Simulated scan of single mutants.
Amino acid sequence: MEPFPRYFEPVSPDKASTFLLFNPPDTTEAYNPAHPNEQALDFAPASIQALAQRFKQHFSSNLWIENEHICMAFLQTLGGYVRFNYAYGREVAIIYEPKAIALRDEILAFLQKEHCRVVE
Results as ranks from 00 to 15, higher is better:
13 P>G: 10
14 D>L: 11
15 K>R: 13
16 A>K: 08
16 A>F: 03
17 S>I: 03
17 S>T: 08
17 S>W: 03
19 F>N: 11
19 F>T: 09
19 F>H: 10
20 L>C: 04
20 L>T: 02
21 L>G: 11
21 L>Y: 15
21 L>T: 13
22 F>C: 04
22 F>M: 07
24 P>G: 10
25 P>Q: 03
26 D>S: 11
26 D>A: 13
26 D>R: 05
27 T>I: 15
27 T>R: 13
28 T>W: 11
28 T>K: 12
29 E>L: 14
29 E>S: 10
29 E>G: 04
30 A>Y: 07
31 Y>K: 10
31 Y>P: 03
34 A>I: 09
35 H>K: 14
36 P>F: 11
37 N>L: 15
38 E>R: 15
38 E>M: 15
39 Q>C: 09
39 Q>V: 12
41 L>T: 07
41 L>A: 09
41 L>N: 04
42 D>N: 09
45 P>C: 06
45 P>S: 07
46 A>M: 10
46 A>G: 11
46 A>K: 13
46 A>T: 09
47 S>N: 02
48 I>M: 01
48 I>F: 00
48 I>S: 00
49 Q>V: 08
50 A>P: 00
50 A>Q: 07
50 A>R: 07
52 A>Q: 01
53 Q>M: 14
54 R>C: 12
54 R>T: 06
55 F>P: 02
56 K>Y: 15
57 Q>I: 11
57 Q>P: 05
58 H>P: 05
60 S>C: 12
61 S>R: 13
61 S>W: 13
62 N>G: 14
62 N>I: 04
62 N>A: 13
64 W>Y: 15
64 W>I: 15
64 W>F: 15
64 W>N: 14
67 N>Y: 15
67 N>Q: 13
69 H>K: 12
71 C>M: 07
71 C>P: 01
72 M>I: 10
72 M>S: 11
73 A>W: 06
73 A>I: 08
73 A>N: 09
73 A>C: 10
74 F>P: 05
75 L>Y: 08
75 L>G: 00
75 L>F: 07
76 Q>G: 03
77 T>P: 08
77 T>F: 06
78 L>G: 02
79 G>T: 01
79 G>Q: 02
81 Y>K: 14
81 Y>W: 06
81 Y>G: 02
84 F>R: 01
84 F>L: 05
84 F>M: 06
85 N>T: 00
86 Y>D: 00
86 Y>S: 01
88 Y>P: 03
88 Y>N: 09
88 Y>W: 09
89 G>E: 00
91 E>W: 09
91 E>M: 12
93 A>Y: 04
94 I>A: 00
95 I>G: 01
96 Y>S: 04
96 Y>W: 07
97 E>S: 06
97 E>P: 03
98 P>V: 00
98 P>A: 01
99 K>V: 00
100 A>L: 00
101 I>M: 05
101 I>H: 05
103 L>D: 04
104 R>F: 01
105 D>K: 04
105 D>S: 07
107 I>L: 04
107 I>Y: 07
108 L>R: 14
108 L>I: 06
109 A>F: 05
109 A>V: 04
111 L>K: 04
112 Q>I: 09
113 K>P: 00
113 K>G: 13
114 E>S: 05
114 E>T: 00
116 C>N: 01
